[in-house]
Nucleic acid binder design. Structure first.
Length: 548
RNA sequence: GCGUGAGUAGCUCAGCAGGAUAGAGCGUCCCUCUCCUAAAGGGAAGGCCGCGGGUUCGAAUCCCGCCUCGCGCACCA
């Protein structure tokens, strides 16, 4: 029995108690779903609910009396061995071993599908993240957004949403000219121009461009700049895409800002004007974002006729809307949190609901060994170097296991360790161990030809089954709250629970002992655990090794 | 000043749609392998959950105020 099934059964008991008139409470007080929790203390049963405490006041009864009304019905649920009323009115449910253990077979048979759910079925989402400027390589901050954004997309998909992963390329504006001019200067052996981009990668791009355009030096600067700019841009984007691919991140759409400048921006401004939120002042065209909670109104078209970056944002938002995405998620860095209100204002001005059609997630910065990284400090670390140094698994896992909106410290030395101290190792090791146990079982003549859930009676087996059973709801919560770190943390719990089970319960019998159905049934549990660990690691974009 | 994120064990951090005795890893101190991965596991010690109010059967969690730290407040991109 899964926690969801138990929850549904308890909900039915509650509805029955209300329908029978035994429990009188206003309909509004009756939850659509009664949540069950795994108690920390084993004396409190396998699953517990505080529903009686919540209903006591609306029902006008002492909590323990409400619990008493429900307890009898709960006892009749098939698979429930015992129901106890504890403390102020908790209902503690103990399952019989066969009902709890059946889950192992369910998981093995569901395989990759275990954990997938339909909590977000029908949601069509545009998930934008990374969107790093194409004027240089990806660095550590982008790395976090890449890891978190991709995992958010994966848990959303696992929960039934239709997700499109999108990268917005800021390839318009003066920065691209500065970028092109920097590469051109490098080609000519000149110093970095004023406002240009320094760095060794510029020299590398110069070499690449020179290889493809050997005659470039013979052109005038005016003629060469557009060629160099375009070629360097292509090379840089290729590098970004390749690096992301090596990081396990693939985008469905790379959206170029430049394409908005052919008219879409002006069309967007006119559409917003028709909605009544645009005005002209001091020669510029403004969006009245203050109507929607922004601090000040924002300029769309400057007095000199040039559109602002914000105007492109507006056109881009409308593009997402026109392309059929009711839900638009933006994952931005902490230095962009001031953009939340104006992005929401765009949504509202476009006639959308800023509470449901747009969602702006803010990710905090990453420090390395306690040091903050910044361009000014000159200690930027590139994603490519991080990959070479630590590997994609350690990077993705460590960046994915913390909530994106809390600052985190990366400790490279720890990530190279093969001990409990390194969480990615801990979880991957547990998976590898399930594989090793399965290999030994095969060699020892243990197979899955029998399954008798009733024999899984050891406390560590009950714990392991409970944690495996909680996995689908963890995935659903991770999707609902856009917090994939919940999956990582739960995998760590499963890994620990598995290691304890492994120490207490053998799958393959010792020496000359015969193979029994207990051994065979435990193999199902072992394989179920490996499956859940692999599924969870997959959501985080981390591999599940068979051996370590 | 305004906005925004953070403050939980010695360290790095979970927990925050309110629940029973506050969690993990590391570090410290004990303990467990002739047999599936000891790359693991068990136990001990270690907490005014930043401070002060409030809400209620119950607050680390929700509300208000304050303190400290990070980040941001362009007709830049």
């Amino acid at each position: 029995m899964t926690p969801e099934e138990l929850s549904a059964a308890i909900t039915a008991c509650l509805q029955d108690a209300v329908a029978s008139g035994e429990l009188n409470a206003p309909a509004a007080a009756i939850p659509a779903e009664v949540r069950v929790e795994r108690p920390k203390n084993r004396d409190h049963g396998d699953w517990a609910t505080s529903i009686a405490l919540q209903l006591a006041k609306p029902a006008g009864l002492p909590p323990r009396a409400v619990a008493g009304i429900l307890a009898g019905r709960l006892s009749d649920i098939p698979g429930v061995a015992r129901v106890e009323i504890a403390g102020p009115g908790f209902l503690n449910v103990t399952l019989d071993a066969a009902a709890a253990g059946a889950l192992a077979k369910v998981i093995v048979e569901a395989a990759e599908a275990y954990g997938r759910n339909d909590a977000l079925a029908g949601h069509v989402v545009n998930m934008e993240f990374v969107s790093a400027n194409p004027t240089g390589p990806l660095h550590l901050a982008h790395t976090r957004w890449a890891a978190v954004g991709d995992s958010i997309a994966r848990v959303l998909s696992a929960s039934g949403a239709a997700v499109t992963k999108e990268y917005y390329i800021n390839d318009a504006g003066s920065q691209m000219n500065n970028f092109g001019a920097s590469v051109l200067a490098a080609i000519k052996g000149l110093p970095t121009p004023e406002g240009g981009y320094p760095g060794g990668y510029i020299d590398d791009l110069a070499k690449t461009v020179l290889t493809d355009h050997p005659d470039i030096r013979e052109l005038t600067d005016e003629a060469a700049l557009p060629v160099v700019r375009a070629a360097a841009y292509q090379a840089q984007m290729a590098d970004i895409r390749e690096t992301l691919a090596d990081f396990g991140v693939e985008f469905d759409v790379y959206f170029s800002e430049q394409q908005l400048h052919d008219g879409a921006i002006y069309t967007a401004v006119e559409r917003l004007r028709e909605q009544g939120h645009v005005f002209d002042e001091e020669g510029a065209v403004w969006l009245r974002t203050t109507d929607f909670g922004d601090d000040k109104d924002r300029v769309l078209i400057r007095a000199n006729g040039e559109p602002t970056y914000f105007a492109a944002d507006a056109a881009y938002y409308l593009s997402k809307k026109d392309r059929g995405f009711p839900e638009k998620i933006y994952l931005l860095g902490a230095d962009h949190h001031g953009y939340i209100n104006r992005l929401k204002a765009i949504a509202a001005a476009a006639g959308d609901d800023p509470d449901t059609n747009i969602e702006v997630l803010i990710g905090q910065m990453v420090s390395v060994n306690g040091a903050r990284l910044s361009k000014r400090a000159g200690n930027i670390i590139e994603l490519r170097d991080l990959l070479n140094w630590l590997g994609a698994d350690a990077l993705r896992y460590s960046l994915g296991r913390s909530p994106a909106n809390s600052p985190m410290a990366l400790e490279p030395d720890v990530l190279k360790k093969n001990t409990n101290e390194n969480p990615v190792f801990y979880v991957q090791y547990a998976h590898a161990r399930t594989a090793a146990v399965a290999r030994n079982a095969a060699a020892g003549g243990v197979d899955r030809s029998a399954f008798d859930a009733g024999v899984l009676t050891h406390p560590t087996e009950s714990n392991l089954l409970a944690q495996l059973g909680a996995y689908p709801s963890v995935v659903a919560d991770a999707a609902r709250f856009r917090e994939p770190h919940r999956v990582a943390r739960h995998l760590e719990v499963i890994a620990g629970t598995y290691h304890r089970w492994y120490d207490a319960c053998r799958v393959t019998p010792l020496g000359d002992e015969p193979v029994t159905d207990l051994n065979r049934t435990r193999l199902w549990l072992n394989d179920a655990t490996g499956q859940v660990l692999a599924n969870g690691l997959g959501l985080l974009g981390v591999s599940a090794p068979e051996r370590m």
